[in-house]
Design a protein around this nucleic acid. Structure first.
Lengths: 349, 349
DNA sequence: GCGATAAGAGAAAACCTTTTCCCAACCAAG
DNA sequence: CTTGGTTGGGAAAAGGTTTTCTCTTATCGC
């Protein structure tokens, strides 16, 4: 075919000036025509629109940003590149922003102050409209101070500065969901195996665990604190069940601090010939699907709704950038229990 | 303290004009002083530098970009938000670019053509210097055509357009590493359990597996194709060992297509009372640390060096943006065997 | 002391778009 | 025929930086 209908990939982008020249008007008129501003004959407006279309004109976002003092760009700062927490969160953020035409700079700072500073300065130089800070631990600060930045900052799943807006998952609420589910199923001796004492969430979840058991008049066993690993799940089973074979004191349910511990617990129980969920129910935390679904039986787990959390954070930043004031403080978003087969069915069901 | 030494977070960024006014020179001179251009007395230059420092001047990157027609910004397009492949890759990319002052727009497009188009246009409008395309499958295209974009595009861990530059891991080489390691350890009957036939890497690794066995004069069992899951690892063990108890035909080594399959294989072997690595050695693929290290015994696995791959891709894009030509085609980067305890030690060791 | 040269610094254009202000023309009313 | 209002469209400034060109002044050799 000699007539090529493709939009002719120009070497250099088409400018408004070229559109104006081609349509035989001034750049001012062209701009107004394309933005629906100003007054002109419908015919002129349409002619300019068609010309722009034909030439494949797209306004230079840099020039617009310079003028509007708004870059339609935000920075996402994280120290959790490899982790699985920041990923769904990032997806949620991006999802909330893409429809507003806002792009996201991803900045992984590890735990390196120098790198963090470098990235923040780069973002500031590029005139990001705002920053979302996130990390792998809800109870730790990023290795950089974002307090006096003259652009809005939102914290998600990481410790906010005072007077800042932060979003977190409601860990205590999530723990309640799990333990109450066990109670509803008629479990009586519910144990809690969780991570190290140095994590704030460990205490928060343990507190909720104790509260729910007390509310139901059930015995409260001291939570077992260890590591966030399968190996610790194994060990914990030994502690819980040794010397109590078939026993009076042995738990009939284990609420675990994460899915890896739960996996270790289930594997250890199977090795001891203890049936899951018939003899002992197990619930995990994080709902890390690749683990929860590979567990035998598939693991019931608390999902922190991180993607929704990211969305909320993105929308909050957008509103802050738009000039809406926001009360500082931490907003907790509810968790959700994903029921699979490791916790058993209700007696009547 | 009444004297506040902090750099006074200005409500609005300080401009070069303000620096110039404060130093009593023109903007032109100020610009030249700060960039080491032009001719002026060392004293003038120093005075301007100090003024800029004192005022906390940082050049507006938007204005610079507009003028230089270079935004020091690249787009990273992926359809693998939740996956573990793109993450180390992204970290490598970011790492390679941060030192050049280049920031990365993260764009997750899932498998949505409309979303992909939207993101690409947003990036083009924002005048990114180039794009890195990555994905969850090495043998699939992203849901968008990046072929005629008038900015450089590099493909990493995803199928490149013809005439484009792509980086991939050398899967065949990785498979060789694993199988040759088994050979060195004196294993004679090496099985291969891997993923579905629809994946190109399955065939590539299987071919290498066959080649190495042939080179060593060992019997080649037909690779077992299934799913990328633990469950399939279990099943495969049944297929491999049923009816061959302690047997002549049973394998003494299993090379697995990923770490999850390997995990399933090891668990199934333990359930059968078959010792790992004493009776059967196991090697996985991907070196997904959280799985490989939780396996009992810890899993030897092939690492695709995705972070290095990301670095290479980033550097290649940088050089393309800088005007250096690059020959189109696919560059394969070597894998690396991470030896843990699931494969056994050499007879002499 | 004079022309040539170099040094130091500023004016202005360029990058691209948006917006405000202004101008010319046209129409209707007085 | 003037006046006042409206309509269609353009000129110019703004946003912040870089770079080229130009201008002034000082220095040097003769």
């Amino acid at each position: 075919m000699s007539s090529d209908a493709s939009p002719a990939p120009a070497k250099t982008p088409v400018t408004l000036r070229q559109v104006a020249a081609s349509a035989g008007v001034s750049v001012a008129t062209a701009s107004k025509a394309l933005n629906g501003q100003g007054r002109m004959t419908a015919e002129t407006r349409e002619r300019i629109r068609e010309t722009a279309q034909r030439l494949g004109f797209r306004p230079n976002s840099l020039a617009q940003s310079l003028l509007r003092r708004r870059s339609f760009t935000v920075g996402l700062l994280t120290n959790d590149t490899y982790g699985r927490f920041s990923l769904p969160l990032m997806a949620g953020v991006s999802d909330a922003l893409v429809d507003a035409g806002v792009s996201v700079f991803l900045c992984n700072v590890e735990d390196d102050m120098r790198l963090a500073q470098l990235h923040v300065e780069a973002m500031l130089d590029k005139r990001v409209d705002g920053i979302i800070a996130t990390g792998k631990r809800i109870d730790r600060h990023l290795p950089v101070d974002l307090a006096n930045l003259r652009i809005p900052v939102i914290y998600a799943f990481t410790q906010p500065d005072p007077d800042a807006v932060g979003f977190e998952s409601d860990d205590a609420g999530g723990a309640r969901l799990a333990v109450e589910h066990f109670c509803r199923l008629g479990r009586k001796r519910i144990a809690h195996v969780t991570g190290p004492a140095s994590f704030a969430v460990v205490h928060e979840r343990a507190r909720a665990y104790r509260e729910v058991l007390a509310e139901h008049g059930l015995p409260v066993a001291e939570p077992l604190l260890g590591a966030w690993s399968e190996a610790w799940g194994h060990e914990a089973v030994a502690k819980l069940f040794d010397g109590k074979a078939g026993g009076a004191g042995a738990p009939d349910a284990v609420f675990c601090g994460n899915d890896q511990i739960a996996r270790g617990v289930i594997d250890a129980l199977r090795e001891r010939g203890i049936g899951v969920p018939d003899d002992v129910g197990v619930i995990g935390f994080d709902n890390w699907e690749i683990v929860a679904e590979a567990t035998r039986p598939p693991l019931t787990s608390v999902d922190m709704n991180l993607s929704a959390l990211g969305r909320e954070a993105g929308l909050a930043l957008l509103s802050l950038v738009g000039g809406q004031p926001a009360a500082p403080g931490i907003r907790k978003l509810p968790c959700r229990l994903v029921v699979r087969q490791s916790c058993g069915r209700p007696p009547g069901g």
